[in-house]
């Protein structure tokens, strides 16, 4: 009886030690994984920030205006070149009627 109790007690003690060890190092691994993910997120956020700035730079109005002028022959509309959607529909009907 005494020997069995000692064996059980020893087994329980070892099991508890192993569990504690796994808990501690498991937590440490999780924290490391979390830090790694956070660093990755920060890196991606930094890349997004750079891309947003690149987009803002590439879409700056003077570049678009110059491209529109040189490549498409377009410029700011005169007042007689502006039409509402309703006016466009009426104009289309008028042209179709001709």
């Amino acid at each position: 009886m005494t020997r069995r109790a000692w064996a059980i007690g020893l087994f329980v003690a070892i099991a508890l030690i192993i569990a504690l060890y796994r808990a501690k190092y498991g937590a440490r691994e999780s924290m490391a994984e979390k830090a790694e993910l956070q660093a990755e997120i920060a890196q991606i956020e930094a890349e997004i920030r750079v891309l947003r700035n690149e987009f803002a730079h590439l879409s700056r109005p003077e570049w678009i205006a110059e491209y529109a002028r040189k490549e498409l022959g377009m410029g700011p509309p005169r007042s007689d070149q502006v039409m509402t959607v309703d006016e466009l529909a009426a104009k289309s009907r008028e042209v179709a009627g001709e």
Partner: peptide, 23 residues
């Protein structure tokens, strides 16, 4: 609970126009 390798940096806020375009 765990000290990261580098303290998180607070980015200076962006400035945008009324339509959200980055300035």
């Amino acid at each position: 609970a765990v000290v990261a390798g580098e303290t998180a940096r607070v980015e200076r806020a962006d400035i945008v126009d009324r339509k959200g375009e980055l300035l």
